[in-house]
Amino acid sequence: MPKLTAMMIVRNEADRYLIRCLQHLERFCDEIIILDDSSTDNTPELCLSFPQVKLYRRKESLFLKDEAQLRQELWNYTVNNSPEWILTLDADEFLEKKAATELPPLLKQTYFQAISFRLFDCWGSEKYYRVDGLWNPWLRGFSIYLVKYQPHLQGTWPKLKFHCGRLPLSYRRLPHLEGHLRIKHLGWANPEDINKKYQRAITQDPEFRYMSKEHYDSILWPPEKIKLEKW
């Protein structure tokens, strides 16, 4: 079976979904490369409690300054650990449970070097995902989360401080197999996080260069305007 390496950036995740996320990844990943972006809680210790984890630590946080540089560093650490397939997930994202049995056949297929998935944003709870506007997972398309490492491809990022993508540009251009597994994103699942994340989003993108104002506004919509479907 081809080796599967997960790579992830973490920062102060101890009180969020980190343990669940690593428990989920250890079921089907051979190695988990983590770059800790200068956490001030016990995130690094939690990471190291999982035997598959290889942890790298930054002394100074880059996430809000230069995400592309941070992603580049994680990529470099990952490729230095002899990967075959690389899965990029955040610490609040989960592939469906059946990934443990249904991901391996995808790694063995020989048609595609990249695999994409649909991401479902759980909203206000873990049981429902959002389907209105740009939140609609069925209509906004697939994104590549899983790639076969190819040394001949350039492993560089566009010079963007934010929204720079999780994989090097050359990998994001590969023809990709649209995967059937869904990704459950819990970033918006806790109602307490929503306002905080809204503030961060508009601080990072005050001129609405990456997303429309309407989309950012929709984060704070009242429940009656938000459309949900059961997970």
């Binding site: 249904e102 056949p105 995808l106 063995k108 297929q109 069925w138 197999l177 995967g179 059937h180 479907e229 059961k230």
Partner: peptide
């Protein structure tokens, strides 16, 4: 997906060729 959620004993779950 919406239709199967209204039906008893109907499922929709496409798979890649390998599965």
């Amino acid at each position: 997906s919406q239709w199967v959620s209204t039906q008893e004993n109907c499922y929709y779950d496409w798979k890649p060729f390998e599965l």
